Amino acid sequence: MSTNHNRIKVADLERNQANKTLITNRDGELEFCHINTLKPESYNALDYTSEGRALDARQGKVLKDMIDNKQVDLASDLETQIDNAVPEDKKVISRLKLFNWWTWIKSQTQTISATWNFKSALLFGNSGYFTSDSIRFYMRASTGKRLQIGVDGTPNDAISIDSSGILLRDKLTLNTANTTTPALILPNSTLTSTPQNGSIERDQNGILWETHAGIRSQIMTKDTISSISSSDTYLPSLDNILNFTGATLLNANYTKIGNTVSVKIALTGTPKALGSDTEIGISLPINRNSSTELLSGICVGSTVDGVNFSALVYITGSSTASIKYKLNTRGTSNIVADFSYAIN
Rank of each mutant, 00 (worst) to 15 (best):
Q71G: 09
A158N: 09
T332S: 14
E279V: 15
Y48Q: 10
K61M: 10
R330I: 15
I280Q: 00
M1H: 11
M139S: 10
T268P: 07
E79T: 03
K20E: 13
T190Y: 05
S164P: 04
A18K: 07
I282Y: 06
S193F: 05
K97H: 12
T154Q: 12
I35F: 12
P182Y: 15
S322R: 10
L242H: 06
S142T: 10
G306C: 01
L184A: 04
S120R: 05
N253I: 00
R15H: 01
S113H: 04
S163T: 13
K324I: 02
I8M: 14
E51H: 01
R53E: 14
P236K: 14
Q204F: 05
D305R: 08
V86T: 15
S160G: 04
T316F: 05
I185K: 09
A121Q: 10
T109S: 09
G214N: 04
G28D: 00
Q71L: 15
W116F: 09
N205H: 14
K97Y: 11
I282G: 02
T292E: 06
Q204N: 14
I335R: 05
V300P: 01
P195K: 05
T268Y: 15
N19F: 15
L167R: 07
T329L: 13
G153N: 08
T154V: 11
S322W: 00
R95C: 02
A54V: 11
N44E: 10
T211L: 08
A54K: 06
P271N: 09
D203L: 05
D305E: 09
N126E: 09
D12T: 07
N6M: 06
L191K: 13
I105N: 11
N175C: 01
N126H: 05
F99V: 12
G269S: 11
T316E: 08
G28N: 09
L167W: 04
R330P: 04
A337V: 13
Q81V: 10
V307N: 05
V263P: 04
